[in-house]
Design a protein around this nucleic acid. Structure first.
Lengths: 248, 248
DNA sequence: CGGGGGCTTGATAATACTCAATCCGGGTGG
DNA sequence: CCACCCGGATTGAGTATTATCAAGCCCCCG
């Protein structure tokens, strides 16, 4: 999906790559037709800002392709990432007028947007959108709580290992594989973005990546391309409980 | 509301102190009647565990009075609080069989419980419960993201000031006041619980409380009773943006 | 070949942690 | 009634981890 496409085509919902996971996943054919009427596509280049915290935001959207981040900043410039949005993830809050966070495209990004007002009306009338949104929000809350454990209690090394594991898992799920054994993928984030995710400085990120490489937990081809020789080892380094769970 | 009451009386929803803020806030009279049928009260003493992570949990609940915490722990014992539940807050996730976190009563606690199955059925049939739950979950997600900024980027001093401000705000909202000027209230958490909230050690919590006291940002009567001479000063210490916002 | 962004590495400093001793206040049992 | 005890809290000394400041590298691209 190239950037230009966004202006020239109107993707059919039935053929949408995120159809089965997005906020519209539960919709019936007739509901989909309603969504089809109010949706439009917007694209952003890597690095572009989608919205600034406090901006009026008159749409909500699903990420179709690419990656976006939600970040919060303090007056002195300290910034913390509070959301990492991958394809099918939802942006914006029904019932809120302004953006609560900075939304930034970290790769080229395509979003499926709905004007807020019609979307809210649709949520009132049909239950399936609201049901799916609740489910997705609960999942996000769980992810946020996992993230809080990482931020509050993990060491720098564990934080890096955790982030690599998270990305590995998401990549595997995209490829419909189970995360285990040897895995190969790309890091979609700069060292600075990783630092903002993990509550570290970019120097510490760099050092710990080097350390994990030295210790054979990860292998690097270039700066971004990663090989995990042993996913379980990575999980151990992340401080995650990787024994048990599969017997229940 | 004493502990004994939980076993002897069945509070009428119409007279419930959290009626206007809880998951049932939007319910009509007839929906309330349905809830009334499936609800029951449970009480816990301060310190008791409501559920362990991984336990089967066959109910969801609203906190009626008292305070509970959600915590996550790593194998080596490091623990991070990921939720602080005050009256009207909701516990449990529809559609999930087991508890995802440790739920602990930090004060005497009264909960209004619904067996999961009937509650889920009710969510399917009537929209008002699901709508309110979505709203509450979105609010919690916002709070979690604010919390992430705190954990990832704030100094120990800022963390303490932030926590005191959060508690002050909630206490004010309970008393239907706006948070400003001079404020007096109790800290409902031990130093250790604060440390788990903030991702610090209890020694650091203690030291920073002493420092804020020394600097006149807070005053203490005993260990728990706090006076804030100037709420704006506290917000400044918390690193929060306290100018602007009230003009929009 | 030069420039620049992203990244790495090094030296030093600051913040928060660890280990340890002591304090305080409230409840209990002699 | 008072001494004791205990959990929670405070304070101190020394250490470790991570941040800060700074220099330089790598690789792509013009």
């Amino acid at each position: 999906m190239s950037i230009q496409d966004a202006h020239s085509i109107s993707l059919q919902c039935g053929a949408c790559p995120i159809r089965h996971r997005a906020v519209c996943a539960r919709c019936e054919t007739d509901e989909l037709a309603l969504l089809e009427e109010i949706k439009y596509y917007r694209s952003f280049e890597a690095g572009q800002t989608v919205a600034w915290a406090g901006d009026k935001m008159d749409f909500v959207a699903s990420v179709v392709s690419g990656i976006a981040t939600l970040t919060q900043t303090m007056e002195d410039g300290r910034t913390q990432m509070v959301g990492l949005l991958l394809p099918s993830d939802f942006v914006g809050r029904p019932g809120r007028e302004t953006a609560a966070y900075n939304v930034t495209a970290t790769t080229d990004l395509l979003m499926c947007c709905f004007r807020k007002r019609p979307f809210e009306e649709m949520m009132m009338r049909t239950p399936h959108v609201a049901q799916r949104l609740l489910e997705m929000t609960l999942d996000e809350l769980d992810a946020a709580r996992e993230w809080m454990l990482l931020l509050g209690r993990k060491t720098a090394r564990e934080k890096i290992a955790s982030l690599v594991a998270i990305i590995a898992r998401r990549d595997a799920s995209l490829k419909l594989r189970s995360p285990q054994g040897r895995m190969v993928f790309d890091l979609p984030l700069t060292r600075e973005a990783m630092a903002d995710y993990l509550g570290l400085t970019l120097e510490t990120v760099s050092r710990q990546i080097s350390a994990l490489k030295r210790d054979g937990v990860i292998e690097l081809q270039g700066k971004r391309h990663v090989t995990i020789p042993d996913f379980d080892l990575l999980l151990t380094e992340a401080g995650d409980d990787n024994d048990g769970g599969y017997l229940t």
